[in-house]
């Protein structure tokens, strides 16, 4: 956090502590693993995580590349920010698209859950294996979802990328045991202890660049299956009778645009978004179709290797 003159006199704020803890985790991974990579999904959590990494290793650039597991179905604004941020941070950007999914033309309209499975879960595993990364940073937080609340900061994956929630390593103090066998990998979540509100406050306090879709603006939308979807490009397949309607919307979470629900909002600036957060009554993952099939759905996906 920016340090005012009287910094030495006051105690660390909640955000100061979270930042210092995340930086400690990032440095520990770089010191203890051979080939780390940062999963960069272009969302707000990724944005904060990248910002923390730049702080952790300053004045050096973060000593690892960014990996974007692309599905070809992200919002156009996300691709624009991704390319800009990669240029500005001086880090290498690796974009991986599952060639099999590309060949089969897997898409969210025809393929349902297979879309997420092939592009994201399989795509991620392929990318990690292809480049031989032994540790991958992710921006997940424990407040997002119940099975995440149980996950360690250093989370181990078998050689086949499986998570065993019943056999997690004890994680004591800030002593992270990063040792692992050949082909085993670690997912590391430096922002485990952040909440959604912490993330927004931090973005505001630090001026972290984020995708403009997080701020309300008039955008073409259709309402479908209880989700408010944005018609981001001509590939969006309208059903019979559907006509895009311009609504003032913003997103609380970003993914593949045909699967990501928006909320109606007039919060066009960060302070307005935070103010809405303070009175909000739905959690952010509600906008994701992926979390809704059954109570233990996220845990199952994670066991299979989803981030």
């Amino acid at each position: 956090m920016n340090a005012p003159a009287a910094f030495g006199q006051r105690s660390l704020t909640h955000l100061d502590e979270l930042e210092a803890e995340s930086i400690e985790i990032l440095r520990e991974v770089v010191a203890e693993t051979e080939k780390p990579v940062m999963l960069y999904s272009v969302g707000k959590d990724s944005a904060v995580m990248l910002h923390l990494a730049r702080k952790a290793f300053f004045p050096a650039p973060p000593p690892f590349p960014l990996l974007h597991v692309d599905t070809t179905w992200k919002f156009r604004d996300m691709y624009a920010l991704r390319d800009r941020v990669a240029r500005e941070s001086g880090m290498e950007l690796i974009v991986h698209r599952n060639p099999e999914a590309e060949r089969l033309g897997i898409n969210p309209f025809d393929d349902g859950p297979v879309h997420t499975d092939m592009w994201k879960t399989e795509g991620l595993k392929q990318a990690l294996d292809l480049h031989g990364f032994d540790a991958a940073f992710g921006g997940a937080r424990r407040d997002e979802e119940k099975s995440r609340a149980k996950e360690r900061i250093f989370s181990f994956r078998s050689a086949s990328h499986r998570w065993d929630p019943r056999n997690q390593r004890p994680e004591l103090w800030s002593l992270y045991n990063a040792r692992k066998g050949p082909k085993e990998t670690i997912r590391v979540f430096p922002m485990s202890n952040w909440t959604e509100l912490d993330v927004w406050q931090y973005i505001y306090a630090e001026g972290v660049p984020i995708v403009p879709l997080y701020l309300a603006a008039p955008r073409p939308t259709v309402e479908r299956d209880g989700l408010l979807l944005m018609v981001d490009d001509e590939r969006f397949r309208l059903r019979d009778g559907e006509v895009p309607v311009e609504r003032s919307i913003r997103f609380r979470t970003l993914g593949c645009y045909p699967l990501t629900g928006a909320v109606e909002s007039d919060a066009a600036t960060l302070p307005e978004v935070i103010r809405e957060m303070l009175v909000v009554s739905t959690s952010e993952r509600q906008g994701r179709a992926i979390d809704r099939d059954g109570g233990a759905s996220m845990e199952r996906k994670k066991q299979e290797g989803y981030f």
């Binding site: 424990r142 407040d143 979802e145 119940k146 099975s147 995440r148 609340a149 149980k150 929630p165 019943r166 997690q168 485990s192 202890n193 909440t195 109570g295 233990a296 845990e299 199952r300």
Partner: peptide, 22 residues
Amino acid sequence: LLVDGLAAEREQGITIDVAYRF
């Protein structure tokens, strides 16, 4: 059920692992 997040925990009605809440 708000805190027992793992499927095994829900089935057995017990807590297996540490859950962090905010």
